[in-house]
Structure formats: structure tokens, C-alpha cells
Write a protein that binds this DNA or RNA. Structure first.
Lengths: 178, 178
DNA sequence: GTCTATAGTGGGATAGAC
DNA sequence: GTCTATCCCACTATAGAC
């Protein structure tokens, strides 16, 4: 039995990729996007930056893996929570606020669609589409949730604003039973 | 009569400030945020980067002036258009898509409230508050408009998606007469 | 108010040895 | 697959002459 099998589904190289993505997520959560340099990520693994290029073509490839990881996590968060519109909204908000820098990285740039695992984007969106069948309504509702989340992350609402009330207003506005 | 009076309301320094902000806006519109360096902005004026520090304390101060200029333009766009919710939405979208990099700069970071002209933020928000009196609804509607605009700017919707239909769904969801 | 010169920082990425 | 050494880049910002 070769070593590869003892390591399970993936070889060493794949492990390093996963480790690098985890390290990048830790850095992002703890220190924000400025900390996301090849040097810092490598240091988290106890190696030097040039070694990362044996596992990722360039920094963009590492970021794409990070975005895919984030989409997976977001889907799990939505899937695990309450299935109604209010529940989805609550899970979405909770995820965004728990990982603000990751959430920004995931949403404030074009999606590298061709580099992502097939179906991942649709999977992450599926809980919302299950409760809002009309695609235009679903897009508007997603945009509204994203807007509230990202504006809250960036501290754009007046200090002391009751944002839960704003989320409630969003849910009411798009409530399917209306 | 001194030279200052011949120049109108502001002196030379103030002119340079305005020129720098205009140059920054041109650069942003034409080449995006990466082009917004002190060197590039100075070059647009035919001077060197260090000279800009006679007019702005640091880069953040220049960016704040740029954001204030953008808020002013946004208000003018909203004020000049149709006053209903649909009209405001249309003007908002048009402004964001006409100046995507400026719009990103204006919204994807905390607002430097204490450094902005007093009342500017409220003025920009006033057209929406005139049509949506409930503050929670107004916040949700603003977030929805921002979400649609910024996601469209970043190319996050599926290619070929009918985004006008999504904006229509937004307006319908928040329509005051409902 | 502009200039030149430069300090100081940090980044992505490659070459080639082991 | 990791290392060291290094390249090349770009940026913000300051000092001091004019």
C-alpha cells in the first residue's frame, strides 16, 4: 500500500493546498485583506513564499480556492438554518458578519466562474431560489441581502441604527405570501 | 484689488485642490482604482507627487474630497430625475453604472463622516426619504439598490440576466402604495 | 508651491541549488 | 517540495533647496 492511500483521498500537494486556504482564511478573519500576502500565508504554514508557487500558479489561483471554500461554507450555513425567507436572511447576515473580510473578498470582485468547481455558484444560491421561484424577485432579494450585509460590514449606517428592523423590512417586502 | 479676489471665492490652493479632485475622478473613471496614486494624480496636473502634499495632508484626505465630490454628484443626479421610487432607482442605477469606480470608492469602505461637509450624507439620502418615510424601509430599499448596483458593477449576475426586471422587482417590493 | 532626491515599506514572482 | 537569493516593481511620504 503506497503512502498516497494512507493519506486518504488526496496526496501531499492537495493537503498543502487545503492548508494554505485554511491559513489564508485565518489570516483574513484575524487581520483583514492587507494581511493576505503570499509571504504571510506561507509563514502560517512554516514555509517561505516561493514554495507556495509549487501549489498555486499565482496569487489569484490561491484567492480563487479561497472564494470556492467560502461559497461552500456559505451554502452550508444557509442549508443548516431555517428554510423560510426570514431564516435564510438571518443565516446570510450571520455568515457575512462572522467573516466580513472573507465575505468582501467573495463578493466585491468579479467571480472567477471558469476556475470554480462546476455547480458551486448555483448550489450556494439554491436555498433562496427554493423560496423565491421568480428569478427576478430572487435576484432583487439577494441584492437586498447583500446590500444590507455589506453596508453593515463597512459601517455605512448611522451609529445606533436598528438594522434588525431593516432586515425585517426586507423580508416583509419580499415575503412570498404577499 | 488683490489677486485672491480676482480668482473668485477661493485662492490658488483651493483651485489646486479642486483640480486634483477632478483629475482623480478622471483617472478613476478611465482606469480604475489602481490608477489612483499620488504620482498619477500629480502627473495629470503636470506636477510631481510631493507637491500634492502642500494641498492635502495625505492620500486619505484627497480621497475624502473625492468622496464628497461624488456624494454631491449623486445628489444632483437624484434631484434632477423623476421623484418617484422608480425614478430614484433609475437615477441611482444610472449614476452607479456611469461611474463604477467612483461608486465603489464611495461605498466600499467606511464613510469618513467627521471629515465630510456637514449635512452632505443626509442630503444625498433625502430624495429616498421623501418617498419612503419609514426609516427601516428606506434603509432596506437603499441597501437593495446598492446591492443591485454594486453586484452589477462587479459582474456578479449570470451573463444575459435581465437586470431591469430585477430593478422592477425591487421597486414593486418597496412600492409605497402597497 | 514646486522641485529633486531619497527613505522606507511591502508586494509578486523567478532561478537554481538541494 | 523546500530553500536562499534576488529582481523588479510601485507606492506613500519627508527633507531641504529654490
Amino acid at each position: 500500500m503506497g503512502r498516497a492511500m494512507l493519506r486518504g483521498r488526496f496526496g501531499v500537494a492537495e493537503d498543502r493546498r487545503r492548508q494554505a486556504v485554511s491559513a489564508a482564511r485565518r489570516l483574513l478573519d484575524a487581520e483583514g485583506e492587507d494581511a493576505l500576502s503570499m509571504r504571510r500565508i506561507a509563514a502560517e504554514l512554516g514555509i517561505r513564499a516561493p514554495s507556495l508557487y509549487k501549489h498555486f500558479a499565482d496569487k489569484a489561483a490561491l484567492e480563487t480556492a479561497l472564494i470556492a471554500d467560502g461559497l461552500q461554507s456559505l451554502y452550508q450555513a444557509l442549508d443548516a438554518g431555517d428554510r423560510g425567507l426570514a431564516g435564510i436572511a438571518a443565516s446570510y447576515r450571520r455568515f457575512a458578519l462572522a467573516h466580513p473580510h472573507l465575505y468582501s473578498l467573495m463578493t466585491e470582485r468579479p467571480l472567477p466562474r471558469t476556475e470554480l468547481p462546476a455547480g458551486l455558484e448555483d448550489q450556494a444560491a439554491s436555498p433562496l431560489h427554493e423560496v423565491l421561484a421568480d428569478e427576478h424577485q430572487a435576484r432583487a432579494a439577494w441584492a437586498a441581502a447583500h446590500g444590507l450585509a455589506i453596508l453593515e460590514i463597512h459601517g455605512r449606517f448611522p451609529p445606533g441604527a436598528d438594522l434588525q428592523a431593516a432586515w425585517d423590512a426586507l423580508v416583509t417586502a419580499f415575503a412570498p405570501e404577499k
